Amino acid sequence: MPPRESAINPLPPLILALFALTMGIEILFQLGSRGIVGGPQAIGWRQAALLDYGFQGTFPSFMIETGQLRPEFLMRFLSYPFVNGSFSQAIFAGVMLLALGKFVGEIMASFSVFLLYVLSTIGGALAMWALGGEGDWLFGGFPPVYGLIGGYTYLIWVRLGQIGAQQLHAFRLIAVLAALQLIFGLLFGFAQDWPADLGGFVTGLIVAPVLVPGGFRALLARLRRPD
């Protein structure tokens, strides 16, 4: 008798690890703000972390102007998603991370989903630098989540094309999810980080074709194909 397939596909382990890290940091902030751990100085842990690990356009601008590659500045391209501005932001971004990570992980390998997350994180920071104000802070886990949405949109676009359906319908998903985040932001408050969300989504959409199984080989075949 063949083994029964599980009705619930497991989450990519690396996505679970990212979620656990993000929520672990948030739990520390919550415990510190209530004086349960860390003593009186723990009340300022969140604010200190935002300043130490958040992203701002002034950091890459400084490196370009001075010709200095500062590790503490480069780190911010990857560290900002793990420091959220509030508990509600951390929870909402975390739930979306798990949901989108599972959807994309049904097609992509676990490491490919992780790489999609990392590249979208960097893409979100670059977009914030290019389109946002230099003094605007970027923090929170939404830009890489939007990168996963970009990857999922591509997968749906391909699937719709295979069955002959209207492929533009794939982009309805990003519209719905963006509307949900907008409502959440209006109710609970959010940073003006729309360039980073856009950058994360576009990055995910662009790199997903290479990260799907056989995608890199397909890209090489297209490049080698004579005109």
Rank of each mutant, 00 (worst) to 15 (best):
A125Q: 11
R172L: 11
R159I: 01
I174H: 00
A7D: 09
F111D: 14
Q166G: 03
F29C: 03
A109H: 07
S6A: 15
R34Q: 08
I25R: 02
A127W: 00
I8S: 09
R76N: 08
M96N: 12
M128R: 02
D193G: 08
T203I: 06
R4S: 15
Q47S: 13
L28H: 07
I36Q: 04
Q30N: 09
R159C: 11
R225C: 13
Q56S: 13
D227M: 11
V202R: 02
L211W: 02
L220H: 01
A127N: 04
L21G: 14
T58K: 02
Q181S: 08
L16W: 12
G32N: 09
W194Q: 12
L223R: 08
L115C: 03
G32E: 13
F216A: 09
L69W: 10
G32H: 10
W157I: 01
L219I: 12
L148F: 14
G141I: 13
G164F: 00
V113D: 10
L18A: 15
V210G: 03
F142L: 12
V210H: 00
L31H: 09
L69H: 02
Y80T: 12
L116V: 14
D227W: 11
F62E: 09
T66M: 01
W137L: 15
P40T: 10
P10D: 09
R159K: 10
A20E: 04
L16F: 12
L148H: 10
A42L: 08
L187H: 03
F59E: 05
H169I: 11
G85T: 10
D136V: 14
M23R: 06
I64N: 05
S61G: 06
V83Y: 05
P71Y: 01
F92V: 15
P226T: 07
F171A: 06
G161W: 06
F29H: 11
L97C: 03
G135D: 11
F77P: 11
M1K: 15
F139L: 15
R34W: 11
Q41M: 14
F216Q: 05
L205S: 00
G200I: 14
A99K: 03
E106W: 11
F73L: 10
A93V: 05
I163N: 06
R46M: 08
L168A: 10
K102A: 10
G123V: 04
G141K: 12
R222S: 12
L16A: 15
G141P: 08
L16M: 14
L160P: 00
A109Y: 06
G161I: 03
D197V: 03
L51V: 09
G101L: 04
L18I: 15
I149Q: 04
F87Y: 10
L31Y: 08
Y53T: 09
V104R: 02
L177Q: 04
M128K: 05
E106D: 08
W194D: 07
L198E: 03
L131S: 04
A208H: 00
G161S: 01
G54H: 13
L187A: 07
R172W: 13
F103C: 10
A218L: 07
P195I: 03
Y80M: 10
G44P: 00
N84H: 13
G189Y: 05
Q162P: 04
G35Q: 11
E65M: 08
L177S: 05
F92K: 00
A191D: 11
G215E: 01
I163C: 05
L119M: 13
I206C: 08
F92I: 15
V145Q: 04
P13I: 13
I36Y: 01
G123M: 03
A49S: 13
H169S: 08
S6Y: 07
L14V: 14
L28A: 15
